[in-house]
């Protein structure tokens, strides 16, 4: 099996990003197919960033942000991310791309084990879905 999934993960620096650091410190292993991109807030992640990730080789996009309703450092960036992801998932479905390839999770800075679980679960799911591109089988 030569194909390995590529996953881009947008992590908010205040929560999921910090949890990823903690996971490192705690020597928790997670799947190396994930490339984390640290963003100031999930509210910064635009639909066009998500699509660009897919177009540039990602088979899955994971977004990790602060818990709702009250954890966002910028009041409601996480809600904004939720709404965008909902719309993009619908769009993906309409064009024949599994919406499961895009996942949003709330992961606080203290939830390193959750981060690891989510990353591994998601990687497994993408592995099952196979490559995004029609010819890269």
């Amino acid at each position: 099996m030569s194909w390995k999934p590529k996953i881009v993960a947008f992590f908010c620096k205040w929560c999921a990003g910090a949890a990823a650091e903690t996971a490192g410190v705690m020597r928790l292993r997670y799947d190396p197919s994930v490339t984390p991109v640290i963003v100031p807030c999930t509210g910064r992640v635009t639909p066009s960033m998500i699509l660009s990730a897919f177009l540039n080789g990602a088979d899955g996009v994971l977004i990790g942000g602060c818990h709702t309703p009250n954890d966002c450092h910028y009041v409601a960036g996480n809600f904004k991310a939720f709404k965008r992801v909902q719309l993009v998932k619908k769009l993906l479905e309409e064009i024949g791309v599994e919406p499961e390839r895009l996942r949003l999770e709330w992961i606080s800075a203290t939830e390193a084990p959750k981060l690891v679980r989510v990353v591994n679960e998601f990687t497994e799911e993408i592995r099952k879905l196979g490559p995004l591109g029609g010819k890269r089988a």
Binding site: T46, P47, L51, A76, F79, K83
Partner: peptide, 22 residues
Amino acid sequence: GLSHMSSVASALMVDREKSVLE
């Protein structure tokens, strides 16, 4: 299309997000 999806996401129920939740 994508930029407008972004604006709709920004504008939708911004005053009630914390009560209606996800």
